[in-house]
Amino acid sequence: MPMWRKLGRKKLKKVELKISHVLPNTEPIHEELVNMAAHIKERSNGTLIVQVYPDSELGNNKDNLEQAMRGANIVTVADPGYMADCIPDYGIMDGPFLYDDYKDIQKLAASAWHQEMVKASAENGIPRNNSNIFEGEICLKWFLKTLKKSLAEQP
């Protein structure tokens, strides 16, 4: 059951969340993020507003990652290579030809090694990161699940 339904008729504070990425607004992932934002606004009765910023409008991947690390209310959609700026070992996930299909990404993301990278990320001020994403239906389901969990952890 969604968080906003559990709270019943209690007046909820309006929350705004920015999602930034460097891709053009013609990319399928951007279109799905916009659809997701509309769906979230509808399902939350307007208490959760998600704004999607394409084309590096809020900065490049490194800028957005730094904003998130400093506590800004922002989600950045970027490849794992940018995480290597903070945790050098993370860069291995961006290696070419590592994966035959998305199941390989899921397997690596579930590994003990990846859990160590997530822990190192948190220790470096990155509150949540996931590396098992890719464009498509599974990406959207993952994103919604992660967003829901992140919001539930907010004070």
Rank of each mutant, 00 (worst) to 15 (best):
Y53W: 11
I29S: 01
D94L: 07
Q51F: 03
Y102P: 04
M93I: 02
A109M: 08
N60L: 07
I74R: 08
N60C: 04
C86A: 12
N60D: 12
E57T: 04
D79L: 03
V15H: 08
E32M: 06
S121N: 14
L48W: 04
I74V: 12
A38H: 09
K62D: 14
N61A: 13
N25D: 15
K149A: 15
Q51I: 10
N60Y: 08
Q51W: 05
K18F: 07
V118F: 00
D79K: 07
N60R: 15
D104F: 06
Q106L: 02
S121T: 06
S56T: 15
H39W: 10
S111R: 14
K18R: 08
M93L: 13
H39R: 07
G46M: 02
L108W: 09
V15W: 06
I92R: 06
T146W: 10
E42N: 08
D89V: 01
P88V: 14
L17G: 05
L140R: 14
N61Y: 07
P28M: 01
E66D: 13
E135Y: 06
K41C: 01
I87D: 00
E57F: 01
K14G: 06
M93E: 01
A152P: 03
K103G: 05
I133Y: 13
R128Q: 10
P80W: 08
E135A: 12
M69L: 07
E66Q: 12
L65V: 05
E153L: 00
P127S: 09
S111D: 13
A84L: 11
A38F: 03
K41E: 07
S56Y: 05
M36N: 03
L151I: 13
N45S: 09
Y82D: 13
S131R: 07
A78G: 10
Q106D: 05
K18H: 07
S56G: 11
L144Q: 12
L144K: 15
G91V: 08
P54N: 01
N129T: 12
D89Y: 09
A38C: 02
A112M: 08
A109I: 05
R70G: 03
W142G: 04
F143N: 03
C139K: 06
C86D: 14
E123M: 05
M69G: 12
V50H: 00
K148Q: 10
M36D: 02
A109L: 06
A72L: 11
I138V: 10
D85S: 12
K148E: 15
I49T: 15
D100L: 09
S111C: 05
A84M: 13
D63C: 03
I138A: 01
K145V: 02
E42V: 07
L48S: 02
S20N: 10
